[in-house]
Design a protein around this nucleic acid. Structure first.
Length: 454
RNA sequence: GUGAUUGUAGCUCAGUCGGUUAGAGCGCCAGAUUGUGGCUCUGGAGGCCGCCGGUUCGAAUCCGGUCUUUCACCCCA
């Protein structure tokens, strides 16, 4: 007896029904990317482990899927480490490759390797799965697709603006109501500087990132536990309780940052981006959010996050500017900025809110009922003719019972069925039946084409 | 990774105190209906009760482990 098949934790299968919906999402996103001049690339599912390690922080390193070396991998392993069961150190000896954790780091590697073939600024998009050994939850998978757009080799804030326009267009096209949250790492660094804890930037950002979720008091407790002085925490309070419009917040921040060069720079950048965005026809709300931190530690400037307004789920898109990701791979002074659309979360939102336009789920427009070998062969010819006109047509392959064929068309949501039996063959006509209204009439092939293409 | 939680037919779920042959609705297949689907009626198929082990005369039910699901933390798309 065969064992019951299963798939690994946190992964999922997609049925044809789900794939048409997913492809609609991918196509919508791709179409916007292309309209802004981004070109596609792909990179391997696996990367060398040293390309990936150390780019996502300690937590990220733990979440990397590592691939066991081929062959007798234990042969080369150190006996001492083996005996001690020291997994951490042993890993380096038995695994040299890992599954990619995101698309940004492989992209940086790609840019460095291909720097002489590329012209900068280089704009690319990339839609591929990534893997994280996270514990799965709703909206959190171990394998999921990211749709990344990045510009590299340009410092201009126009790029940040363009990414906001892209986010706006993508979600408007898909019909998802969202808010774009914007912040800047320089502002966060400025805050750390001002309160006299410049070296604790990560601890501070991780803590204030939770402000909305756990409240001010608990954030302060956490900051204190992380070892911040009471004085520093006290200095932080007015910043955390900033409120009002984006420009109002920026004005207050500018004042606070009077003595911080870095913070001032961050405020200026935010102000410029927001000012330009306001002059364009961006409909999505862009909200300055000082508590937005983002864990990936390669960000250095603007950081973005997009939240769905009508569904409780983690952020569905996120990104930011990284000034020196390529530096690690030997290409200095190349700044990039990009964002990543989380296709699987977008898929979950679209499903929950049922945002698909009706035509997305229609595949076949017209199905020919098969009355027998002779009639079927005749239908095949008409079907080819219709396909040349761009119609999506199928001929039922077996001369099964009428009821079975009709039921098939029904299930597949096919709007029209064509009946061509001996009578129609002799008359040179096709009986076209509307499956919704039940109406049917005999017509010539040209009439059918006209019905569908008008 | 830490702490909880879930698993019974293709799907959603009942299943009493441990007790004979594990049920329902939906779906599926067939017939009523030979070239006309959806509605109705009739009949049928489909289950290692997640998996492994233990307790017991006897386990879907109790116990342990494991896998999976969902949730919180952590982190994130």
């Amino acid at each position: 007896m065969a064992q019951k098949p299963s798939i690994p934790k946190g992964t999922r299968d997609f049925t044809p029904d789900e794939m048409v919906r997913r492809n609609y999402i991918f196509d919508s996103i791709k179409e916007v990317f292309q309209r802004y001049g981004y070109m596609p690339i792909e990179t391997p599912a696996m990367e060398n482990l040293d390309t990936l390690l150390g780019k996502y922080g300690d937590e990220g390193d733990k979440l990397l899927f590592k691939i066991l070396n081929s062959g007798d991998f234990l042969n080369k392993a150190d006996d001492g480490l083996l005996a001690q069961k020291d997994s951490n150190r042993l890993t380096g000896q038995i695994s040299e490759k890992g599954l990619r954790y995101d698309l940004t780091v492989p992209f940086a590697r790609f840019v460095v390797q291909h720097q002489n073939e590329l012209s900068f600024p280089f704009k690319r998009y990339q839609i591929q799965p990534v893997w994280r050994a996270d514990r799965p939850q709703k909206g959190r998978y171990r394998e999921f697709f990211q749709c990344d757009v990045d510009v590299i080799g340009s410092d201009s804030l126009f790029n940040e603006v363009e990414l906001i326009q892209i986010v706006d267009e993508v979600f408007r096209n898909l019909g998802i109501r969202v808010v774009i949250k914007l912040n800047n790492r320089k502002v966060l660094a400025g805050i750390a500087e001002i309160i006299g804890e410049a070296s604790r930037l990560t601890d501070i950002t991780v803590a204030i990132d939770k402000l909305e979720k756990i409240g001010l008091e608990k954030v302060n407790v956490e900051l204190s536990e992380k070892g911040l002085t009471d004085d520093a925490i006290a200095k932080l309070q007015p910043i955390l309780s900033l409120s009002g419009s984006n420009s109002g917040k920026l004005d207050q921040l500018a004042h606070i940052f009077a003595s911080s060069e870095l913070g001032t720079k961050g405020v200026e950048e935010l102000r410029e981006v927001l000012t330009i965005v306001e002059s364009l026809d961006v409909e999505t709300g862009v909200e300055l959010d000082l508590t937005l931190a983002r864990g990936l530690n390669y960000y250095t400037g603007a950081i973005f996050e997009v939240k769905a307004l009508d569904m409780q789920i983690g952020s569905i898109t996120g990104g930011g500017r990284y000034d020196d990701l390529t530096g690690i791979f030997g290409l200095k002074n190349v700044s990039g900025v990009g964002i990543s659309f989380g296709a699987d979360r977008i898929f979950d939102v679209m499903n929950q809110l049922e945002l698909y336009p009706p035509e997305v789920t229609t595949t076949t427009q017209l199905m020919f009922v098969n009355f027998g070998p002779k009639e079927g062969a005749h239908c095949l010819k008409i079907a080819s003719q219709l396909r040349k006109e761009g119609l999506k047509v199928e001929v039922y392959p077996d001369s099964a019972k009428m009821k079975k064929q009709m039921t098939y068309a029904n299930k597949k949501n096919i709007a029209f069925v064509a009946l061509v039996g001996e009578e129609e063959m002799n008359a040179g006509t096709v009986t076209l039946k509307n499956m919704e209204s039940g109406e049917q009439s005999a017509m010539k092939v040209e009439d059918i084409i006209r019905t569908f293409t008008e």
